[in-house]
Design a protein around this nucleic acid. Structure first.
Lengths: 194, 194
DNA sequence: ATTATTTTTGAACCATCGTTCATTTATGAT
DNA sequence: ATCATAAATGAACGATGGTTCAAAAATAAT
């Protein structure tokens, strides 16, 4: 497969996302990524230190973007807490619906990267900590249920969305993205009881 | 490490769960599992066909149990739909809280097993299909919100619980299991709005 | 056109395990 | 005690695939 000229580094990363999504990190071969990118396998090492570095750079990009976006949302004083949470849900679905293979990699492969050796966990931690602040502010201002454990809700929402994204990315016929957004918002806002 | 005598097959599987939980499937060595079980590495192959068979047998056991339990819950005519869902939440937390390494393996490693080659996916499919039936019955009987997309809710709840379990198993100091159960039930029943 | 420099190549290297199996050890029957 | 059978061992095999690097190709400079 051919790349746009002058964009080899990004092209390799795109190819890596596709191959990682299809086979999983450990069953992906550098030679597959290289041929997907239209280069020789040795050339991957001109742009990336090793296989793990490819995965790390994917997550670096994702978490940096997620952190930047959530920071902007948090700062907006015209939005209530629940508005901010809904914006956050849209944000995540927007990022990954534009790139289904990235969604699959995002959901399944972060486990192979350790906190000690990867700087992007800084963004990861800040993302979650900002999310917590938004929820806490909502409790303080009285719009969110004060019985809610912030940590539990944070993980529950993230985990639920990840699982939905994965299943959507693998077989988008099962449900439309709009159904997905609407229902997640419905569930977290009002629950499932009639 | 020593096993109870006369229980080698189960002992090996327990050791595999521990090692898979700690290092992940692909970074786990048969030699590690063997030494954890107190046997020679070749002896693993007296009880299990190969490395993948170890993982498959773990999931076989889990999904068979989950399917049997959800079937019992579904049959109970003394429970409403929401009661059944709450029982289900308790069931999952009970199974995995008794075995944190199993929770970690359950959440992270199923991806390495393919539907085509593993019979336990029968239980997996039946489990989810039974879950859907419980939710659908709740909608029909009028106790659950009829705007709810059953598939979306099913995945959202499962994904949320998986992510919570993983984080709890990795660092149980973050939250107590009772907090976890209560909050999951709270969120899905009533949502987070005050 | 010639030379210097940079980029790319891909065959070969080599470390890493999963798996096998000839041998040893344990168990049980007579 | 002796023999037969079963269970367990762990060194060695072999396949795999990430990574390297000498050589080739492309590009730039003179």
């Amino acid at each position: 497969m051919r790349n746009k000229e002058g964009n080899k580094e990004a092209g390799i990363l795109e190819s890596a996302i596709k191959v990682f999504a299809k086979h999983g990190y450990h069953n992906s071969r550098i030679s597959q990524i290289a041929s997907e990118a239209g280069i020789a396998s040795g050339s991957v090492y001109l742009y990336y230190k090793n296989k793990e570095d490819l995965l790390a750079r994917i997550f670096q990009n994702v978490w940096e973007q997620l952190y930047k976006e959530i920071s902007l949302i948090q700062k907006r004083h015209d939005l209530s807490a629940i508005d901010k949470i809904e914006y956050l849900i849209d944000l995540i679905f927007d990022i990954f619906s534009a790139n289904p293979p990235l969604a699959i990699v995002f959901v399944n492969e972060q486990i192979h990267l350790k906190k000690e050796t990867n700087t992007f966990f800084h963004f990861y931690d800040e993302f979650f900590s900002t999310g917590e602040k938004i929820i806490e502010a909502g409790i303080k201002e009285g719009s969110l249920n004060s019985n809610l454990n912030v940590t539990v809700f944070k993980f529950f929402l993230m985990g639920g969305m990840k699982y939905l994204l994965e299943n959507w990315a693998k077989d988008s016929k099962n449900f439309q993205l709009t159904t997905l957004r609407q229902n997640v918002k419905l569930i977290i806002k009002r629950g499932i009881l009639k």
